[in-house]
Design a binder for these strands. Structure first.
Lengths: 217, 217
DNA sequence: ATCGACCCTGTACGGCGTATCGCAATCAGT
DNA sequence: ACTGATTGCGATACGCCGTACAGGGTCGAT
């Protein structure tokens, strides 16, 4: 069986899906492909490059088959698909935004994002809009995955955890040094991660809409 | 000289400031304090815990001395101070949002954020606002640091790099597969990272303002 | 003075990324 | 066909990592 980048990246993604990024070592990738570790260096030159290739591969899942006509739908779809990709591949949250993504699929996602706004405002406004939506998305996704992991680690939902003597945080909140925080934790409505993501995203898209208008006026 | 968490965390931060997160190893931290590596385990139980402590320590720099009265100024100040902290400690960008920050200083920052919006809308709207601003800030900061590093690595400004045959990206853009991207790269005005951050932040604060109004109306 | 318990930390283990270099396979020259 | 030079592959090995563990040193009790 001939080796190539694709098989290497696929093996690395499988390992990362199963055990997180830290389960990805060049030795384990090589073992899964039944070759010696150094074989890989004929196809990739560094572990970081492998990570870059993994990120780009997942961007292929993010790109929608067809682009909606409405810019707002297009941007929302891309953001939601990025989120879903990160839920399927939690390690993506560790890598997203960590370095510029310049692989062909990531560029295609960037292209789709820009294309959705093309002509709706001057280039600089469009770029600011893209940056803002992307910053929100990656930040929100990272937080969501961080929470998923924390909940999995304690085996409790966030709410239960705080209420029922999540020992450390409860103690901190009980000190009275964080009154607003305590109120938010105890009085806030529980909301799904998807709702939270969608709400913030809509707010951000609202402000993008407002600024597209202002710029074209 | 007696050892304590503070000295350990300070040594780790110094190492990270000098050589990035990957330059932080328990062995090097210990060496800098002139003790054996295992001494550290009397004060921290894992390398991850050390990272958490480092993040919390930097949050002390983020918390402003006095809180402005206006919510918008308060939120903007916190976001800008977080960004400045990340510029002083680039490794913070690698850790921000990676896991829930529950140290005393991070909680104090969260408290200040919530307090700024306290009473201006129902709790759920306030929480959504905080989440959105935080998601934007961490995402934007991560991207900025990623760009700073990429520019440092190539020794060229982003613009110069693309224009003057940054070989790979130029080739990709020349394929014609990314027309909107190419246009943005070639026709976009160069803008400082701070302007970009501030613009997006203002947009997000605009939408927060709009939604605070709607909720209280 | 002797012993026991406990804390401390040096030693050591398994695993990592990847530099290096010996060797097998290939090819050129006769 | 046979030899010698050359190349490129990948096994071996190096230096580093986080941290388990056990042995030693310390100190209190008898």
């Amino acid at each position: 069986m001939p080796l190539d980048r694709e098989r290497i990246v696929a093996a690395a993604i499988a390992l990362a899906d199963e055990g997180g990024l830290e389960a990805v070592s060049l030795r384990k990738v090589a073992a899964r492909l039944e070759v010696g570790p150094m074989r890989l260096y004929g196809y990739i030159s560094t572990k970081e490059e492998l990570f870059d290739l993994m990120v780009d591969e997942v961007h292929a899942e993010i790109l929608p088959e067809e682009r909606p006509g409405e810019w707002r739908e297009a941007l929302g779809l891309l953001a939601h698909r990025t989120r879903l990709a990160a839920l399927r591949h939690e390690w993506l949250a560790d890598l997203l935004g960590g370095r510029p993504s310049l692989g062909p699929n990531a560029l295609a996602v960037g292209e789709a994002t820009l294309a959705a706004l093309d002509g709706l405002a001057d280039i600089d406004t469009v770029m600011r809009a893209v940056e803002t939506v992307n910053a929100y998305s990656t930040g929100a996704i990272r937080r969501e995955i961080a929470n998923v992991r924390a909940e999995r680690a304690t085996g409790l939902s966030k709410r239960d955890w705080q209420r029922a003597s999540g020992p450390y945080l409860t103690r901190m909140l009980a000190t009275g040094r964080y009154p607003a925080l305590a109120k938010a934790v105890y009085d806030g409505t529980e909301v799904t991660a998807e709702e939270s993501f969608a709400t913030g995203l809509n707010w951000v898209l609202d402000t993008v809409a407002a600024n597209l208008d202002r710029s074209s006026a």
